[in-house]
Simulated scan of single mutants.
Amino acid sequence: MNAPRPFRVEPVEFAAAREALHAVREAVFVREQGVPAGIERDALDPQCRHVLARDADGRPIGTGRLTPQRTIGRMAVLAEWRGRGVGDALLDALLAQARALGWNELSLHAQATAIAFYARHGFLPQGGRFVEAGLEHQAMARRLDAVNPVETRDAGLAAFLGVAAGTRRVLRIYSRELDPGLLDRPEALAALRRLATSGRQVRLLLQDPAAPRRALHPLIALAQRLPSAFAFRAAEDPVDLDYPAAYAVDDRDGWYFRPLGHRFDGETRLDGGGRARQLREAFDPVWERARPCGEYRALGL
């Protein structure tokens, strides 16, 4: 049984919770990040739906809001509470409110340091980065309860991070040659390392295992350091070798599918249970008839 969280998140009315909301936001945005106080507060606050996180003693520790323009903003967690699930709980509460309102899409401006956090929750980058309130930001969006189109490499990376984050036990990856430009990105390697060091497994099914070996793909080196968590197999059946697509699928409801495996564009969804189940059922028989990549275990030894 999971231990109870040492905090709670609840919807609040702005007028009643103004002091608590501003206390957190001023601590994070104004004092910590140097955002001018006149920018941090705006006329939208009374029109927004707010969520507030409090610790066990009732002290405010995190905030977030939904604007009438269907954007998420003012996500802030006190420094001493970061990395403890507060931000995830705040974002989940905002997504639940958006669904209850019948909204089918949300957008946000993520600080550059928070892009991976929002990606883990299904948000994909749109366009280039820009400076807002003196800080580098990235526009991101997510369709709710629907397939999200992936159109760029950065969006593909975000889609992969979301699928990896949803893995409970086994992440399955079907790839031609370990997807250079995607699975060798530092963010992807960090996500895979987190899975491996937390007792989860990664199965990678390849069509051309020689290419990443020649290229000294960093994922092979990572797998050699954590051999109990990673397994590589190579497809040999001609039908499997002719399969044009590539995908990653977790063991819950998340997937990222590319019709052409050498490209990054495709579709993703973190709550698409039927399609995730279909992809796992397609992956497993190919995995069973594929050969283990023994050459990867020996590389570099």
Rank of each mutant, 00 (worst) to 15 (best):
A190C: 06
F130M: 02
R5M: 12
R277G: 08
F117T: 05
T67Y: 01
L91C: 10
A100H: 08
G134R: 09
L219G: 06
E132R: 03
P46T: 10
A3R: 10
W287I: 12
E288T: 10
P238R: 11
P60R: 01
P285Q: 03
A23E: 14
I72V: 15
F264V: 11
A210P: 00
A141S: 06
G134P: 01
L94G: 10
Y247T: 07
A43G: 08
T197M: 11
Q126L: 12
Q69D: 15
L192P: 06
V12D: 06
G73K: 04
P209N: 05
Y174L: 15
G273N: 00
L183M: 15
D45I: 08
I220K: 11
L182D: 03
L270W: 03
L144I: 11
A164R: 12
D237E: 14
R297P: 00
G273S: 06
G38I: 04
L216N: 14
G199Y: 10
C293V: 14
E26R: 15
Q138D: 01
R275C: 02
D55S: 12
A234K: 05
D184W: 07
L135P: 03
R291A: 15
D57G: 15
L157I: 15
L94A: 13
A158R: 04
A211T: 15
L301M: 09
A246G: 15
L161C: 07
L241S: 08
R214P: 01
G38E: 15
H22P: 00
A15H: 07
R25V: 13
Q207E: 09
R169C: 10
L226C: 09
R65Q: 05
A56L: 15
T67W: 00
P244H: 03
A229N: 07
R25E: 05
A165M: 04
H50A: 14
A196Q: 13
A221Q: 14
R65K: 01
L171K: 11
M1T: 13
R143V: 07
T152A: 11
T71H: 06
A188D: 02
A290L: 01
R8I: 13
D242P: 03
I61G: 11
D184Y: 07
A190E: 15
L135T: 02
E187P: 01
L206T: 13
G300R: 10
D251K: 10
G254Y: 04
A282K: 09
L192I: 07
G134W: 00
L241A: 09
R280D: 06
E80L: 08
D265W: 03
L178Y: 03
L78Y: 10
L301P: 02
L95D: 03
L101T: 10
